[in-house]
Simulated assay, not measured.
Amino acid sequence: MKKVIISLISLFFIFNLISCDKKDSQATVTTTDSTAYSIKESSTCNVSIEPKIELLSIVQYLADDPTIIKENLSSDNDKYSKDIASYFSKYIDDPVVTLYKKMLKTGFSYSTPPQAMLYVDDNLKLLTNLTLPSDVISAAGNKKTLIKFFDLLSDFRKKSSFDDFYLSHIDLYKKLVSTVKEKVDKLGCIDKLIDYYGYKQNSYNFIIEPLSIGGYAARIPSKNDKFDLYDFMVIPNDDAEFFQMVIHEFGHSYVNPLTEKNIDEVNKYSNLFTPIKDAMTKEQYGSWDFCVNEHIVRAVAYRNLDTNFSSGVNRRYIDMDTNRKFIYLDALSEKLKEYENNRNKYKTFNDFYPKLLETLKEFSDSSSTKK
């Protein structure tokens, strides 16, 4: 998903860090004792708050990126926002902030900035074993601009003493790790995700973005034709909201490649985009393939709500999204019952994906008949 907007009432825990294990591991960002380090715990998922992502978020905050929340927060979150404003306000015209504002205009927003940070090391240097995706480069304007942004971000980190700010909040981060660990353990999100899609990826990684408006997905090639999956997200207090967001975000790394693989078939039904194009574009899903992905990952998330919470919760989400013009969602959700009831036939979600396209074909054929 490019984005998921969650209600403010769900933001009571947006500083929370997820944990899947009792074992702490602290990876240093640089080589001295006074530098920021990630707070990370691992089990079926690796969950962390990362200094380079927090550094990015602060630049986004100063640049008035609409994906960053500053006001109408819970008391703890409001304090954190005010801490950022107080500590970094004098850097509002810093070159990295100015450049970021320009990059915003070329599409460097929502999922793209945190995704870009996966391609640099903790010292903001490009990783040599990975290739920057073309869509990330395009959103930044060009590769030269993106490299300049990383260099300016590194300079900003030093001149602003970002590490001191980060370390001053370590106790908060650690406390919240244990709080959210209980939620992850209780809900078992990753195991249920793997079971539903039918196969396991190389790794599952939560990176918490405390002031983000929602969640974003990314994946990086790993070994054995598998991927390292990433979920950048806030942490809603409500269990159902948290659960569906996790299934949704990681679900993109399963669904999006299938849409890409079947894009010729998907595009046969692009006439279905016409009646919802304006609404979808406002939601940042400005192309038919994005729209298809969003419908499918939502349908999967809400089917999992049905089996793990209640049909009433599932229905509430479907109705809410249908009102937002996700008009094929209900039918796709119903179609998924066939998958769930025939797992001997459909070992993985990949095997069933063409059946979902048959549902879109039915809508497309019906639409053509009405003309």
Results as ranks from 00 to 15, higher is better:
244 Q>M: 08
331 A>G: 01
89 S>N: 15
21 D>W: 10
272 L>V: 05
79 K>L: 02
252 H>I: 04
259 T>M: 03
12 F>N: 15
213 I>F: 04
148 K>R: 12
6 I>A: 03
256 N>Y: 01
201 Q>P: 06
255 V>C: 07
304 N>Y: 06
177 V>S: 10
26 Q>W: 13
120 V>Q: 01
356 L>T: 06
316 R>F: 12
50 E>V: 10
48 S>G: 10
121 D>L: 01
261 K>R: 14
156 F>W: 12
181 K>C: 06
150 F>R: 01
329 L>A: 00
259 T>H: 01
165 F>Q: 09
175 K>N: 08
357 L>D: 00
221 P>K: 08
72 N>H: 09
206 F>Q: 12
232 F>V: 01
364 S>W: 05
365 D>Y: 02
44 T>R: 12
232 F>M: 07
277 K>N: 13
194 I>M: 00
97 V>Y: 00
12 F>A: 15
24 D>N: 11
77 N>I: 00
194 I>D: 00
369 T>E: 15
166 Y>N: 03
58 I>A: 05
16 N>Q: 08
193 L>I: 12
128 T>Q: 11
325 K>N: 10
271 N>L: 07
264 D>V: 14
96 V>M: 02
188 G>S: 13
328 Y>G: 00
233 M>Y: 02
188 G>P: 10
127 L>P: 03
326 F>D: 05
241 E>F: 02
99 L>K: 05
249 E>Y: 08
344 N>L: 14
360 L>E: 06
362 E>Y: 02
348 T>H: 03
341 N>Q: 11
124 L>P: 01
153 L>K: 04
284 Q>C: 14
119 Y>E: 07
252 H>P: 05
338 E>H: 08
127 L>C: 06
75 S>F: 04
6 I>K: 07
341 N>V: 04
352 F>T: 07
245 M>W: 03
14 I>G: 10
1 M>N: 09
98 T>G: 06
171 D>A: 07
69 I>S: 11
195 D>M: 01
43 S>H: 12
48 S>Q: 15
284 Q>G: 00
72 N>D: 09
165 F>M: 11
263 I>L: 09
